[in-house]
Every structure is written in structure tokens, then in C-alpha cells.
Design a protein around this nucleic acid. Structure first.
Length: 558
DNA sequence: CGGTGAACGTA
DNA sequence: CGTACGTTCACCGA
């Protein structure tokens, strides 16, 4: 057990509970104890959240296995918000509505003190965590009961998980590893070639401005490249969509919105359209991924850092801040391995239809996953060209309505009825606002769209819930497979002197010493075979990765 | 001042 | 644009 109290990282109190023995102290001072216990016993660390491991991770201590009570709670009960008081309550079988709330400020002592248990008690008369437990934990002596409490929670969660499905406890374990990996990703950052990145930024935003006036001039100069095409309308604010719409109407481009995919069709109609689209591309880099971003998010060690989250609030994919998940492709040449290092880049091929084959248990569709290109056997079976088969499969999974997938869709229903019926059932239950579980067991509520309006009251809302549910069962299950893969890679490549530096939904980027890069690539591929077998329970579904050793993220795959 | 929608980057 | 996320901007109402 490893728990930490409130306070600044490093300076906060913490406790290690192992084999009946408790050691408490400042978290930074406990790192050695943590390392000793790990080396001697390789335990499954139980913690309220991986944040408890922050000091140990900062010190470079590798922790192999964990049970993360917050992530377990999210999997078991759905939703994202999971404060300890709620995690405790649901683990103890208490109603969430009864969780006592802690009013902030001085008022708290006056108003609620009589309802609190005696100072040495963590749990109140009703069985909930004492309402002021956050403040209560400022006393280091209280960390021991805090550690026992999370152990109680973890045991209850393990029982509950086993009761839900045979796979759920394995999902908790891999989710816990992913959450710990997030702390490591925050520590390590993504290697950048700063000079090259600055060059790329300059290409869009112009040279680095020395003063605010220079910056304003550069901005005006960028705007002028668009406005010169519309004499008489030089005062249009390009950052105001309503004004842009009016400007476009004045030159004969009448559009419902000024979105990129709408304007693409008007490129040839008036030169201001391509100029505006180019302006938007550059403006994105100038404002979001420009010099300010470089200065704020890239460390002195040329690493791009941001906060990582193991699961989003919907189906459970990982999220990252500061551009780690949405860096424009033109900046990717700036992501470069350090001297003596290489990236190993691996991305899953056609992961969502392969996941559908597992989740649905469709034997015929599973057979198609034996091919490197899944759409080839599907096209053959349907008697259509490959592009048609691909559009039909994507349309079935995502409910795409535009495009000409109609006839092929009917073919899919006939050829793979089991897979198609899973998608139909997910859509139908989502329309009714029923929660679903992903293949690994995550509970996903579907009533999250304007919860005030019940299912059945708004057809458009019901359809949105249906589409969300159909997507979530695939996207969420794919996220589980991905995290199982990432956790396996984390474990099997750490002796090579490098590790994962980026997770991007279906893509892993490792930074490893050059001499170990080919071995790392082999282990990444082997990890996929292992993780897929464990996650899918041995289903006859093949997963494939495109894996290559490269120097820059943008380098062509070989 | 905070919240909202448009817009757009990624998967 | 099928879904999800993070970020910035302008606007709105308080």
C-alpha cells in the first residue's frame, strides 16, 4: 500500500504499508522504502490513485504492478468523477447520495463539527468517510488508517469486479498500469528537436517577435494575405466567424458555416477561400502551437510535457494536454529522437473492426482478421471492390449516413450477422439511455447527453445517444486493448534503457538507445500478441501493428 | 468574470 | 462530417 496526504509533491506526508508494517514520513523520504519493498517483493501496490507514486516515479523507481482504486471505481461504476469519499461509499455498498459534502472555509468548523466522528476515526456513524477527511489527512498520524481504508476498498472492488465479469479484474490491473504510465509520461516528456520545431513554427507564424508591437505587426501581416483578395473589406475580423461568413457572402460564397470542410468545395470559386484556409492553418500554429507553447511546454531538456489522463469521461481512451495528442502534422518533423537514440513507432492496423470481431464473437468476421488487410476478405465475401467494403464496414461501426454504402451494408448484414447485430443492439440500448459495458467490463453511461431530458423525449437526442453507444462499445474496447498492449510494452522493454514516450490511441512511440532499437521493435510486436491474447481471452482474432525504427516521428514507415 | 459555441488539430 | 479529446478565440450575460 502506498498512500500520500495533501501538500506539495515531495513535501507531503505519505505512508507505506507492507506485510503488516507501516512506515510514514515525507513522501520524498519514503522513496527508498518504496524501492526496497518493490525490489524485495514486487507487490501489487494499492493506492487511491497513481499520484501517490509521483515521488517514487520522479526518483526513477519502477513499480511493476498496481491496483488503482480510482480507476477501478471508474470501470466498475462508470463516469469520471471519483473522489475518495465516493469510491469508498460505493465499495462499501452505501448509496452515493448519502456521501457527506464538506463545505469549504471557516464555516465548516462551526456548522458541521458536531456531525464529525471523534478525531481518531476516519469513518462516520453512517459508514461514510468523515466529511473533512481531506483536512484530517494533514495530520501525518492519520495516514495509517487512510492506507487501511484503501486496502478495504481494493478488496471490495476485487470482489465486485469478479462478480461482474471474469475479465474485469484484469482490466483494472491494466488500467492501473496505464495510470502509472501516465505519471511516467509526465516525468519523461516527448523528445523534441527545438531548433527544427522553431523553424517549423516560423514557417507559419513568422520569426519570433521581440516585442508585443512586433507580434501585432506579424499578425496584421498574416491577415493581409487574406484581406488583399477583398478590397473594401480590409476591416473584416478574420477571427469572428460571423464577419467571415458575411465577407464570403459578399464575394458570392454563400455558406451555412465557414467550417473547413464546407469551404473546401469553394476553393476554385474565389481566391479568398484558399487564402483563408491557409490563414487558418497558420493561425492555429501561431496561436496554439507557437512560441508561447514552446516556451511554456518544452523543458530545458527539450522535452515536451503535458498532463496525462488514463481514461477520458466517455469510453475510456487516454488523454493528454499541451498538444501531445493534437500536434499538427506539419510540426511532427520536430519530434526527434535524441543523440544515440531512436524512436520505435508502432501503430495498430484496422484496430476497430478487429475489436468488433472480438466483442461480437462473430466467427466469420474473426476469420477475416487473419488477413493483414481485413477489408480484402470482406470485399471478396461481399463481391464488391475493396474501397466499397471499407466504407461499408466503417459506416456500420460509426453510423455514417452520407456516402454510398447502402448496398454493401446490406451485404454486411447477410455475411456477418453476429457482428452487425451487436452494433444494432448497442445503438438500440443507447437510444433507451441504458448503460453498456465494454468488452473488458467498463461501465459506460449513455444518458450523459443533457441528463435533464429523459430518453424518449427528443428523437434527435435519442439518436445521438444511440450513435454514442455504438461507438463507445468499439472505441472503449479498443482503448482497453491498447492499454493492455502499452502496459505489456512498459514491462517488457524497460531493461533496454528507454521506454514509451507517447500513447496516441492506436499508436505507441518508444525512445530507446539506438543499439537496442531493433530488439525493442521485436518486443513491441511480441507484446501485442501477448496482450491481445490475454485481453481477448484467446479469441481467434488477429491484431497487427506496423512497427518501424525511425529518427523523427514524421519519418516514413518502412 | 465565467460559461458557451465556433473552429480545428489529433485518433 | 461517426465519436472522442484539448485549445483558442469572440461573444454573451452577469
Amino acid at each position: 500500500m502506498l498512500v500520500a496526504g495533501p501538500g506539495r509533491p515531495g513535501a507531503r506526508p505519505a505512508a507505506v504499508l507492507h506485510d503488516g508494517r507501516v512506515r510514514t514520513g515525507v513522501a520524498a523520504a519514503l522513496v527508498e522504502v518504496v524501492a526496497e519493498v518493490e525490489a524485495a517483493h514486487r507487490p501489487r501496490w494499492v493506492w487511491w490513485s497513481a499520484d501517490a507514486a509521483r515521488e517514487a516515479v520522479a526518483a526513477g523507481v519502477h513499480l511493476s504492478r498496481a491496483w488503482d482504486a480510482t480507476e477501478a471505481h471508474r470501470l466498475l461504476h462508470g463516469g469520471w468523477d471519483a473522489p475518495p469519499a465516493l469510491v469508498w461509499a460505493l465499495a462499501r455498498g452505501l448509496p452515493a447520495a448519502g456521501v457527506p459534502t464538506a463545505p469549504a472555509g471557516d464555516l465548516f468548523d462551526l456548522v458541521s463539527a458536531p456531525d464529525l466522528p471523534p478525531d481518531h476515526e476516519l469513518v462516520d456513524r453512517a459508514g461514510y468517510l468523515r466529511a473533512d477527511h481531506a483536512r484530517w489527512l494533514e495530520d501525518p498520524a492519520h495516514l495509517e488508517p487512510w492506507a487501511h481504508a484503501v486496502l478495504t476498498v481494493a478488496r471490495a472492488q476485487l470482489d465486485a469486479a469478479t462478480g461482474v465479469s471474469a475479465r474485469l479484474s484484469a482490466t483494472v490491473v491494466s488500467e492501473s498500469a496505464a495510470a502509472l504510465l501516465c505519471v511516467e509520461l509526465e516525468r519523461d516528456g516527448l523528445p523534441l528537436d527545438r531548433a527544427r520545431t522553431e523553424q517549423l513554427v516560423a514557417g507559419a507564424a513568422g520569426p519570433r517577435a521581440a516585442t508585443d508591437a512586433d507580434e501585432a505587426r506579424a499578425r496584421t501581416a498574416r491577415d493581409a494575405l487574406v484581406l488583399r483578395h477583398v478590397p473594401g473589406r480590409e476591416h473584416t475580423d478574420l477571427r469572428n466567424p460571423a464577419q467571415v461568413k458575411e465577407l464570403l457572402a459578399a464575394v458570392g460564397v454563400d455558406v451555412p458555416s465557414t467550417r473547413k470542410w464546407v469551404l473546401e468545395a469553394y476553393r476554385e470559386v474565389h481566391p479568398v477561400v484558399p487564402a483563408l484556409l491557409a490563414w487558418r492553418r497558420d493561425e492555429r500554429i501561431a496561436t496554439t502551437y507557437g512560441y508561447r507553447w514552446l516556451d511554456a511546454c518544452v523543458g530545458a531538456d527539450d522535452r515536451l510535457r503535458g498532463r496525462w489522463t488514463a481514461c477520458d469521461g466517455a469510453a475510456g481512451r487516454m488523454t493528454a494536454e499541451n498538444g501531445l495528442h493534437n500536434l499538427p502534422a506539419v510540426l511532427r518533423p520536430g519530434v526527434a529522437a535524441g543523440p544515440g537514440y531512436r524512436f520505435v513507432r508502432a501503430d495498430l492496423g484496422q484496430v476497430e473492426p478487429r475489436v468488433l470481431a472480438v466483442v461480437s464473437g462473430d466467427a466469420a468476421f474473426a476469420a477475416a482478421t487473419r488477413a493483414d488487410d481485413l477489408y480484402a476478405p470482406v470485399a471478396q465475401r461481399l463481391g464488391v471492390e475493396r474501397p466499397v467494403a471499407k466504407i461499408a464496414v466503417l459506416a456500420a461501426m460509426y453510423g455514417q449516413r452520407s456516402g454510398a454504402a447502402g448496398e454493401a451494408l446490406a451485404g454486411l448484414e447477410a455475411a456477418y450477422p453476429v457482428a452487425m447485430s451487436l452494433l444494432d443492439r448497442a445503438y438500440a440500448s443507447g437510444r433507451r439511455g441504458e448503460p453498456l459495458r465494454t468488452y473488458g467490463g467498463r461501465l459506460v453511461p449513455t444518458g450523459r447527453f443533457l441528463a435533464a431530458q429523459p430518453p424518449g423525449s427528443d428523437p434527435a437526442l435519442d439518436a445521438a445517444r444511440g450513435r454514442f453507444a455504438r461507438n463507445a462499445v468499439i472505441q472503449g474496447s479498443a482503448a482497453e486493448l491498447f492499454k493492455a498492449w502499452a502496459a505489456t510494452v512498459r514491462a517488457t522493454t524497460r531493461d533496454l534503457g528507454g521506454g514509451i514516450v507517447l500513447c496516441l490511441h492506436d499508436e505507441l512511440l518508444l525512445h530507446v538507445p539506438e543499439g537496442a532499437s531493433e530488439e525493442a521493435a521485436r518486443r513491441v510486436d511480441a507484446a501485442l500478441v501477448d496482450a491481445a491474447r490475454r485481453w481477448s481471452g484467446g479469441a481467434p482474432v488477429r491484431f497487427v501493428a506496423d512497427t518501424s525504427v525511425i529518427a523523427r516521428w514524421s519519418d516514413a514507415k518502412d
